[in-house]
């Protein structure tokens, strides 16, 4: 699904990613953990195609295709989805209108007609029920006045609507109380299949109790310094990151 080789990236000439290697296969859930400032969110942004980040070396392959030259929306059309750590507000644009625009933009890229209104309604109903979202919520302006939990739930709702091949969840657990966390995680689990993949970026192990990863990677100073199974997450929870830093610096 996703193959990252020796990825180096910088922003405003500051080198942040310093040689990342990562392969995610269809049907897998990977988690990236690491201390603050290790480059986790940068990795998410680079894969999603944020312009400020410059790839200085290495490749990103999505299903064998080099996506380096593709604009962010083209990557989205190919099935990359990023659940933002800090979703932005768009005043006056309802969640429904935003989703309709996004879905039809993705369909257009695939040469399909706009989704018929009744089909769209059915999809909205189904996915909002799955994520226990009040339908009134969908008429509100996108992220405007949303609580932290509502913002994150809205991100996962969008993921459910767009059905991506690769979903990157950037700190989706931050700002969520335990009930919201469970709902969001359940949603992600229901969306999981043998044909898609999930990359969870998180600081804490908490989310991984609900979305159980097949692989856990530790990112430190722009490199993956340790990989393992889900037990690695528990070990990090217990011992913190200092022992990893020591290992690396030794």
């Amino acid at each position: 699904m996703l193959k990252i080789n020796n990825l180096h990236a910088s922003v405003e000439d500051k080198s942040i990613l310093k040689g990342i290697n990562l392969e995610i296969k269809a049907g897998e859930v990977h988690a990236i953990m690491g201390p603050n400032g290790s480059g986790k969110s940068t990795l998410a942004s680079v894969v999603a195609g944020k312009e400020e980040y410059e790839v200085t070396d290495g490749t990103i392959l999505l299903e064998g295709e080099d996506i380096e030259e593709l604009a962010a929306e083209e990557r989205a059309h190919k099935g990359i989805f990023l659940s933002f750590q800090y979703p932005v507000e768009i005043p006056g644009v309802s969640v429904t209108n935003f989703m309709k625009t996004a879905i039809n933009a993705n369909r257009k890229a695939k040469g399909l007609e706009d989704m018929p209104a009744n089909e769209m309604l059915k999809l909205i109903r189904e996915k909002s029920e799955m994520l226990e979202i009040d339908r009134k919520f969908l008429s509100r302006s996108l992220n405007e006045g949303f609580s932290g939990g509502e913002k994150k739930r809205n991100e996962i709702f969008q993921m459910a609507m767009l059905e991506p091949k690769l979903a990157i969840l950037d700190e989706t657990d931050s700002g969520l109380d335990i009930d919201a966390l469970r709902i969001v995680a359940n949603g992600v689990n229901k969306l999981k299949s043998k044909d898609n993949a999930v990359l969870v970026i998180t600081h804490y192990q908490r989310l991984l109790d609900y979305i159980v990863p097949d692989f856990v990677h530790v990112l430190y100073n722009g490199k993956i310094v340790k990989s393992g199974g889900k037990e690695l997450a528990h070990e990090l929870e217990e011992k913190g990151y200092d022992w990893i830093k020591e290992e690396v610096n030794a």
Partner: peptide
């Protein structure tokens, strides 16, 4: 940031 958010959802 608003534009990137839309781009990421497939909106040019």
């Amino acid at each position: 940031d608003q534009i990137f958010y839309c781009n990421q959802r497939g909106i040019d």
